[in-house]
Amino acid sequence: MTLPDAVKSTPRLPLDQDGGPVFSAPWEARVFAMTLQAHEADVFTWSEWAESLGAELAGDDIHDQQPQGYYDHWLNAFEKLLTRKKVTGADQLAELKQAWDEAAHATSHGQPIELKRGNT
């Protein structure tokens, strides 16, 4: 995957030897792709994105017993930026997270998780 220079310079972005992003779970790749799509749709500038992510990463506490992963910070920054830009509201995000958690708990291991229409 060839990334634009601005994306490659994102704070602490894990890259492989070929300069592509590294993901340890499918949801990480999805939120990465959603962020790029939102940027390409002019929802925010890459500078705004880097500032939002940087603020999340700066909140890392080296003494935290359960530190967040890089893409947990990425997701938090993305949600905050979408809320700040009034693309979505915090209540909508909370409802979607609850619906996702309920669907995940109701889904057998190895099966795709599906949200029922009307829950989002």
Rank of each mutant, 00 (worst) to 15 (best):
E51W: 12
P4H: 06
F32H: 07
Q65A: 15
A38G: 12
A33V: 09
P21D: 05
T88M: 13
D72P: 00
A29Q: 13
L15G: 02
T120F: 13
W100L: 03
M1Q: 10
Q37G: 12
W100M: 06
P26H: 12
D64I: 01
Q92R: 13
T2D: 11
T10K: 04
E51S: 15
T35C: 08
P21C: 02
R12V: 05
A103H: 01
D18C: 01
A103E: 02
W49N: 05
L53A: 08
T83R: 11
L3Y: 02
E56S: 06
R30Y: 08
G54Q: 01
G69K: 10
F44H: 07
L57N: 03
G69P: 09
L115V: 05
N119G: 04
T45I: 09
L115M: 00
F23L: 07
T2I: 11
L81N: 06
E95V: 08
I62M: 14
P14Q: 10
L75T: 05
E51V: 15
G59W: 06
D60K: 14
K116H: 10
L36K: 05
D61S: 08
A55I: 06
Y71E: 04
D60V: 14
H73C: 05
A58C: 09
D18Q: 11
G89K: 13
K97A: 06
L96M: 11
P4Y: 10
H105V: 00
L57I: 08
L93A: 07
V22C: 07
Y71H: 05
Q111T: 02
N76E: 04
V22Q: 06
K8F: 03
A77V: 00
P11N: 01
L75R: 09
L15D: 00
W74S: 02
P67S: 03
G118F: 02
L81Y: 08
G19S: 02
L115W: 01
G110H: 01
T107I: 04
E79T: 12
Y71T: 05
A41I: 01
H109G: 10
S9G: 00
M34C: 12
G89E: 12
K80Q: 12
T35G: 05
A41C: 11
A99F: 01
E56R: 01
A33T: 12
L93Q: 06
T83A: 13
W100H: 04
L93P: 00
A94G: 08
P26M: 11
L53T: 00
D16G: 09
D91L: 13
L115P: 02
P67H: 06
E79S: 04
Q17E: 15
V22D: 04
I113E: 07
P4W: 04
F78P: 00
D64G: 02
V43T: 14
A77Y: 04
P11I: 08
P4D: 10
K85S: 05
S47G: 14
T120D: 07
W27G: 07
Q17I: 10
L115T: 06
V87E: 13
W49Y: 09
D18P: 00
K85Y: 04
Q66Y: 14
T120H: 13
D64T: 00
F78K: 04
A6S: 14
R84K: 15
T45P: 09
G19T: 01
N119P: 00
R12H: 11
A6G: 11
H105Q: 11
K97R: 09
L3W: 06
E48M: 03
D101W: 07
E56Q: 11
S108T: 10
G118M: 01
